[in-house]
């Protein structure tokens, strides 16, 4: 299976999904007007990965901002990962110091999704 690599843009995050390492990285900002379009290939990739996932899968969420259009797509992505069989799935949720909003956003998903979340405070994302 191929890696999925997308460069960051002014409105979309950097994406590095690595099937060998079992790491799924989203980094930067996710504020597209229509997020469905952007998240479609990410969901498709996860469907492919589900057939033969690594022993461990870690989602690295390093988002600086995301809009409410993306928040729903991110939830759908987590729900897909929640259903993966044969792999330990966990989420590393990064937020910058004093960014209570991004910390709370992580807690929102934690309340809905049954995956282990690690909240990681960093100086700069």
């Amino acid at each position: 299976m191929e890696k999925l690599i997308l460069e960051a843009s002014a409105k979309t995050p950097e994406v590095v999904f690595d099937p060998t390492a079992g790491t799924l990285l989203l980094k930067g900002r996710s504020i597209p007007e229509n997020s469905i379009e952007f998240y479609k290939p990410l969901n498709d990739w996860i469907d492919g990965y589900a057939a033969n996932p690594g022993a461990q899968t870690v989602i690295e969420m390093k988002l600086e901002y995301f809009n409410t259009s993306s928040s729903k797509c991110i939830l759908d992505l987590f729900k897909k990962l929640e259903k993966l069989n044969g792999t330990d799935v966990s989420v590393n949720w990064y937020f910058e110091e004093d960014d209570e909003d991004m910390e709370e956003a992580g807690e929102d998903y934690q309340a809905i999704i049954k995956l282990p979340f690690k909240m990681i405070e960093v100086e700069e994302i």
Partner: peptide, 14 residues
């Protein structure tokens, strides 16, 4: 967030 559907336009009413 948990109950909403994303519309064609990508809005979720949030």
């Amino acid at each position: 967030l948990n109950n909403s559907m994303v519309s064609e336009k990508g809005t979720a009413g949030l």
